[in-house]
C-alpha cells in the first residue's frame, strides 16, 4: 500500500483514518499479547511437560505428552475422581452464592431505580452496599472464620446453654454455606451497581407508558425491566461465573488450604495452588489443570450465553 501512495501521491482522494484506529488500540493489543495471550499459550505448552521440584532438586522439563491430563483424570484407589469432585465443589459453592446474589441485587436495583418509590439517600445506600467489595476477601474470610470458629462467639452462645459446640468447619454444608455467604456478601453490591446502570439505561417512557396502561409492578418488572435488562444480566452472570470458577481466596483461608472436611470445600483453583506452591512447583500438572479450567469456563460461558440469548424471528432462514 505504501508503494502505491508513494508512486501516485496525486491519487489521494479520500483520507484513511484507519491507521489512527490501529494506533489507538495498539496499547491494548500490546498489553493483551504480553499479559494474556503469551501466558495462555505457554500454559498449554507447559501442560505437556513433566517439570517439578522435589526438595531442592528440579525434575524436568521433560516432554511427556498428555500424561499430566491422564493423571488428572485417573480416579484414586477408592474410586473418587478428584478433579470432578473439585469442579462440583466449585460449582455448588458458586451457585449457593450466585443465586441469592443476583436475586438480591436485582431486587435492590429495581427498588433504587423506581420512580415511584424515589428513595432518599441513594448515594449513601449505594456506598454501603458496595463497601463489602472493598474489603479484602482474605480479611472477610478471617473474620467469618473467627465468628464461626470452634471457640468463636456463635459457639460461645451455643455452649453457654450447655449444648455441645457445633463445628461449622467440620460439616460439609455449613462450611460450604459460610463460603457461599461470604462470596454473596462481597459481590452483591457490585452486581447491584451494574444492574442499576442497566435499568437506568432503559427508556423511562416505557415505564410511564406501562403505568398509564395500568400495568402493576410485577408486570412492569417481568414484561419491561427484565427483557430489556437481559444483555446486562448476561454480562453479570458470565462475569460472576468466571469469577466463581476461579473461587480461591475465601475457601483457601477459611480452611487453611486443606479443603476440609473431606475435600468438600476444595475448589479447582485451590487444587491448582496446591500444585504450584511451596515445595512442589509442579508447572506441568498446574498447566494441565489450568487448561481444564479454561475449557470448563469456555463451555459454561457458551451455555449461559446461548441459553439467555433472545430468540430472533429471522433466525430460521
Amino acid at each position: 500500500m505504501s508503494s502505491t501512495t508513494n508512486s501516485a501521491p496525486a491519487k489521494r482522494r479520500s483520507i484513511s483514518y484507519a491507521k489512527w484506529g490501529y494506533f489507538f488500540i495498539a496499547p491494548f493489543v500490546l498489553v493483551f499479547i504480553v499479559c494474556t495471550f503469551i501466558p495462555l499459550v505457554s500454559t498449554f505448552y507447559n501442560s505437556l511437560f513433566e517439570n517439578y521440584k522435589e526438595g531442592l532438586t528440579v525434575v524436568g522439563p521433560n516432554f511427556v505428552g498428555f500424561d499430566n491430563f491422564v493423571k488428572l483424570f485417573t480416579p484414586r484407589a477408592d474410586g473418587r475422581l478428584e478433579i470432578l469432585n473439585y469442579t462440583v465443589n466449585t460449582m455448588t459453592m458458586w451457585i449457593m452464592g450466585a443465586i441469592p446474589q443476583i436475586v438480591f441485587a436485582l431486587l435492590l436495583a429495581v427498588i433504587f431505580t423506581s420512580e415511584r418509590l424515589k428513595i432518599k439517600g441513594q448515594g449513601f445506600f449505594k456506598t454501603v452496599i458496595y463497601m463489602p467489595n472493598l474489603i479484602m476477601a482474605s480479611a472477610f474470610a478471617m473474620l467469618f472464620f473467627q465468628i464461626f470458629s470452634d471457640v468463636g462467639p456463635i459457639n460461645q452462645i451455643i455452649t453457654a446453654n450447655g449444648d455441645k459446640a457445633f463445628l461449622f468447619f467440620n460439616n460439609e454444608w455449613s462450611a460450604k454455606s459460610i463460603i457461599a455467604f461470604i462470596n454473596f456478601l462481597m459481590w452483591f453490591g457490585n452486581t447491584t451497581i451494574l444492574l442499576m446502570a442497566g435499568i437506568m439505561g432503559i427508556d423511562q417512557s416505557l415505564f410511564e407508558a406501562a403505568s398509564i396502561d395500568g400495568a402493576n409492578s410485577s408486570q412492569v418488572f417481568f414484561k419491561i425491566t427484565l427483557p430489556l435488562l437481559m444483555p446486562i444480566l448476561i454480562y453479570v452472570v458470565i462475569t460472576a461465573l468466571i469469577g466463581g470458577l476461579q473461587m480461591f481466596d475465601v475457601p483457601q483461608i477459611i480452611t487453611n488450604g486443606t479443603g476440609n472436611p473431606d475435600q468438600t470445600t476444595k475448589t479447582l483453583v485451590m487444587a491448582l495452588n496446591g500444585q504450584i506452591n511451596g515445595n512442589t512447583r509442579n508447572f506441568g500438572m498446574a498447566g494441565a489443570l489450568s487448561v481444564i479450567l479454561f475449557i470448563i469456563t469456555g463451555i459454561l460461558s457458551f451455555i449461559v450465553f446461548r441459553s439467555t440469548e433472545p430468540k430472533k424471528e429471522g433466525k430460521k432462514k
Partner: peptide, 26 residues
C-alpha cells in the same frame, strides 16, 4: 475426619495419599 467419625479410615488415608502425591509427584 476418621477420628471424629465423619468419614471412614480408608477415605481419610486416600485424602492423605493424594496430598502427598500433590506435594511429591515421584
Amino acid at each position: 475426619g476418621y477420628i471424629d467419625g465423619s468419614i471412614d479410615k480408608d477415605t481419610a488415608l486416600q485424602n492423605f495419599y493424594s496430598k502427598i502425591r500433590e506435594q511429591y509427584p515421584s
